[in-house]
């Protein structure tokens, strides 16, 4: 209870009020917690207006035939479940859903996560010079604005780009990566771009592991891998789940990288859900349909969020 500061204007009520709210009566406690909640107001207003608002709007808009131009733009009509029925029968939807799952798993959960953890573990024991070279290059890719990263990756994978030039140097056949393997290109690009985040999360987490614990494990004879799996990983368990949550959701949101590199093509072969929603709403002018896709994406995001919240359990530590 030392963690509870004295209230402003504390003279009005005895200090016991903080300790025994039940005895102090309901009204003063309620008033106090109301006053304490005042600093929350700006955040709550912003979140209600621009986060909750669009979510509600999304659900509402998905039941209309809103369009970019024409009469349905200014005066959308309620069409019930039509957009969702169209979604179920649209063969492009399962395609986009599947590509999104592939993109999430390969680029975030496997690529960024494991590469980030590996880099954090290896750099922890590496000479300082090596560590700073790694940190500089990996983090620069992450700090760059997304559109710049996308241009750099576009150039790297394009038919006359760096990758093909390197392949030519070892006498391998050049491949038109962005057309032949668009998913591989955008997955690698997203790993290149996002790994720094995981690396930094894990570096911070490893720094927090008390050296006594790893030393104790060394004394007990635990080798490198054993120490990693039985000591280090459990110690940074929270960071792992936080990191997985954040990179999964960041990757679910990736639009610019794919939009610039492949525009979702060729032939929708790299059209993840964000690209799909954009193309339907702004390319074909079907805003209502695009909103239905957005609502599905929000649902997916919501499911992930709830899953990870269950792992994290905020407030348990306070």
């Amino acid at each position: 209870m030392t963690a509870t500061p004295t209230r402003t204007g504390g003279a009005r009520r005895p200090p016991q009020a903080a300790r025994r709210p039940a005895a102090a009566g309901r009204t003063p406690t309620a008033r106090r917690s109301l006053r304490r909640a005042v600093p929350l107001v700006p955040a709550v207003v912003l979140l209600a207006l621009f986060m909750l608002g669009p979510v509600i709007w999304s659900v509402y808009g998905s039941f209309t035939n809103a369009s970019l131009s024409g009469t349905a733009a200014s005066n959308p009509r309620f069409v019930g479940l039509d957009n969702y029925l169209a979604l179920i029968t649209d063969p492009d939807f399962p395609n986009a859903l599947w590509l999104t799952v592939v993109f999430l798993l390969l680029s975030a959960v496997i690529g960024q996560n494991f590469l980030g953890l590996g880099l954090a573990l290896l750099t922890a024991a590496a000479p300082k010079a090596v560590r700073s070279v790694v940190a500089t290059t990996v983090v620069t890719a992450w700090v760059l604005p997304e559109i710049v990263a996308a241009f750099a990756c576009y150039a790297f994978f394009s038919s006359d780009g760096t990758l093909n030039r390197m392949l030519a140097a070892v006498n391998a056949e050049p491949v038109d990566w962005l057309f032949t393997y668009p998913m591989a290109a955008v997955i690698l690009a997203n790993i290149w771009r996002g790994t720094a985040f995981s690396m930094m999360i894990y570096e911070a987490a490893l720094n927090d592991v008390a050296p006594e614990i790893t030393e104790a494990a060394v004394i007990d004879g635990a080798g490198g891998w054993k120490r990693l799996i039985y000591v280090t990983v459990p110690m940074i368990r929270n960071s792992i789940s936080t990191n997985l949550m954040l990179i999964t959701l960041q990757t679910l949101s990736v639009f610019t990288l794919i939009f610039v590199m492949t525009s979702g093509g060729p032939n929708q072969r790299s059209t993840t859900l964000p690209i799909f929603a954009y193309a339907e709403a702004f390319g074909l002018g079907k805003v209502g349909y695009g909103t239905a896709i957005a609502t599905v994406m929000l649902l997916i995001g919501a499911v992930f969020s709830i899953l990870y919240i269950r792992v994290l359990k905020p407030g348990d530590n306070s």
């Binding site: 917690s33 809103a66 959701l249 805003v287 995001g301 919240i309 407030g315």
Partner: peptide, 30 residues
């Protein structure tokens, strides 16, 4: 403060971090 709204609020915030913003751009536009 250990207030009653802490936990629901933090859950809400954490939930908000999960919403894919790019997904919202079509409804946000309209």
């Amino acid at each position: 403060y250990q207030a009653r709204y802490n936990k629901p609020f933090l859950y809400g915030v954490l939930f908000g971090t999960g919403l894919p913003i790019t997904a919202m751009m079509v409804p946000v536009y309209s």
